[in-house]
Write a protein that binds this DNA or RNA. Structure first.
Lengths: 201, 201, 201, 201
DNA sequence: CATGAATGAGCTTTCATTCAT
DNA sequence: CATGAATGAAAGCTCATTCAT
């Protein structure tokens, strides 16, 4: 019998990546072991190697996938009525241990040593930034945002703020429940506000 | 006969921590091995354990020390004529592979799993924030900064921006050489600017 | 309907053995993996086990086949006008990486531990030796070879020389291009030459 | 306290090499596992790696040592009254499973794939051959050996005969108890004997 | 006949840690 | 104070073999 495999193969791969994401979030890239991932994925140690040549490939694929999903999520948000606000809201949400399970900092840390990961991160960063810059340019045309700002640089700054928001929650978890979101929004709105005629946000 | 001992002991400890910082920056907390650190510190494996009970203690002590030094550095900067500007400048400096050797993201990543490290990080974050908040309050009294802003929250936001600036440089190394510093400064100055009658930059 | 099966089955077996010979020569009995052989034979791992119960069986069959083919080759050589000379020539030929691809030493090494392989080797050795001894006896009758020599023992010695010639080429590859063949021939001819004065061993 | 270590270190190394020789002889280079060697050497798996960086280094060192010891043995033999005879006698001796434990064929087989091992083998082969050639030259001066023979080539041939003798014993173990030694001696003596009338092949 | 998914034992190697000296 | 010998658990990975399809 011929195979319906390609589907099943991809399904298995995703199963592994999902398990890996969980384990990596729990114990870090180095701390999570292959057998831990295997147990989580309900799969023997040997079999996992039919889907990935080595651990690093799992890390790369998982990072790639995670960033892709983040981009989709981001795109959806940008079609909401007030994207910036929605955006900030997302970044400071603590629900269901999302922060703890967020691997951003693992990726950032590892990217400093692992060239492949650094490339993946850069690629996705640029893609996301382009998306954001486009949005900003349109808003500039509509006069909702300071037209003097360079869209690309501004997008980079906004992304930095998102990462910063996440680091803030790790540095002081209590802030998650306060009005940090409001302040972040204020930060962004004052930054983007058209400056000419002295109007406010 | 033994009077120099305590000094020498502390000296040795610092020697180890310095070596550890180097190794951790190079290979990460998990990636760096005790023997690697020993080699770097010019010391036998067994001897190192006279100074630290285990690897985790080294990580903790090194993080503690690193954050303390960062605070000192920070304090010094805050006494310069234009602290904010000086501050941004520091955060985006790429000199001598400082970014690569920065362990912030390793600490942030690990703090999500390691309670002890999380505590250390939080403690230092709060201390630094208090320092920064004090500075902001004074500036508010002098009318240089929007008096409506909550000093504590604003300080938290500023710290987030610093972390964000670092992440920006990892996500897109090219930005280190552009005018990202100018934009960060713009971001901060628009945020802090007194809002009274009109706008200022 | 099924008449071609037996043929095809045998064909497949040979295909596997040929692939195995290549892989074993390249990586040794232990070093070559089943999947390597499968790849070489253009066959799935599971399917290979329809033809051989396990790896050892492949080793045995391949050895058996290789020795059989060597015997045929040998027989053909012995019908040439000057068999001894032709023989030596064969043993020292380096063409097309023949030495590297020769598994004699793998077999000799393995035969010291694997009884089955030892049996196969012994069986073929005795067969070959009988062939050679027959030839020697005829030559003795014709007075071309010292009649005092025991044909069986002499055959054993000649075979030892062939193996020795191969080891010589591995120990010092440069010898393959010199006049080692001439010396081997001299060795053999002086050994076999009728001893004029009729002295015995 | 300062160390008497260097001695002990070397002793341990030899202990490992001895254990390795035993295991390799029993199961082959690939077949013998590190843990097997550790068990034989009475040492933990991890500790063995303080003495050798990896398995291949053990194989190399053991081969090197074995060949060196063989050379010494050889040198001693060559100072006996009738070296050739003593030599042959040695090569065909079966006592205490010496053949089974001989790793010559493992080394020859592996040398075809492992460059480092090939180099070691070649180096020792050339050294041994030089020794043997010297001996032959002296015998030629004394008129005990055909002066027409090239000493170096002749030495190579004699070494080939030794390897051949060993292969003979593996191919047909019964020969060890017969008069194979006598025939080998005959082979060698006829080869080396001064050719009275000066005739060539 | 043929595939390749799946297993699990075993491999080499690394590493934090302990301890006798 | 200082060494490095020694351990043992665990890591990542490979492989012969089986089995459902």
């Amino acid at each position: 019998m011929r195979k319906v495999d390609p589907d099943k193969h991809e399904e298995r791969r995703q199963q592994i990546l999902q398990a890996a994401a969980l384990c990596f979030a729990r114990d870090g890239f180095r701390g999570a072991s292959i057998s831990e991932i295997c147990a989580e994925a309900g799969m023997s140690a040997g079999h996992l190697y039919h889907y990935f040549p080595n651990k690093e490939a799992i890390v790369s694929a998982m990072t790639e996938g995670g960033l892709a999903r983040a981009a989709e999520h981001f795109e959806r948000i940008m079609q909401s009525p007030d994207p910036i606000r929605a955006f900030i809201a997302e970044s400071t949400k603590t629900k269901r241990g999302l922060i703890k399970e967020s691997l951003v900092f693992d990726v950032l840390a590892e990217a400093g040593r692992n060239t492949e990961l650094a490339d993946i991160l850069r690629r996705h960063t640029l893609a996301l930034r382009a998306l954001l810059a486009d949005f900003l340019r349109k808003a500039q045309e509509q006069g909702r945002i300071d037209a003097e700002l360079d869209a690309e640089m501004t997008a980079a700054i906004l992304m930095a703020i998102i990462d910063g928001a996440r680091s803030m929650l790790i540095r002081d978890p209590k802030l998650g429940k306060g009005d940090s979101a409001d302040y972040l929004e204020l930060l962004v709105s004052r930054f983007l506000a058209p400056q000419d005629s002295g109007q406010s946000v």
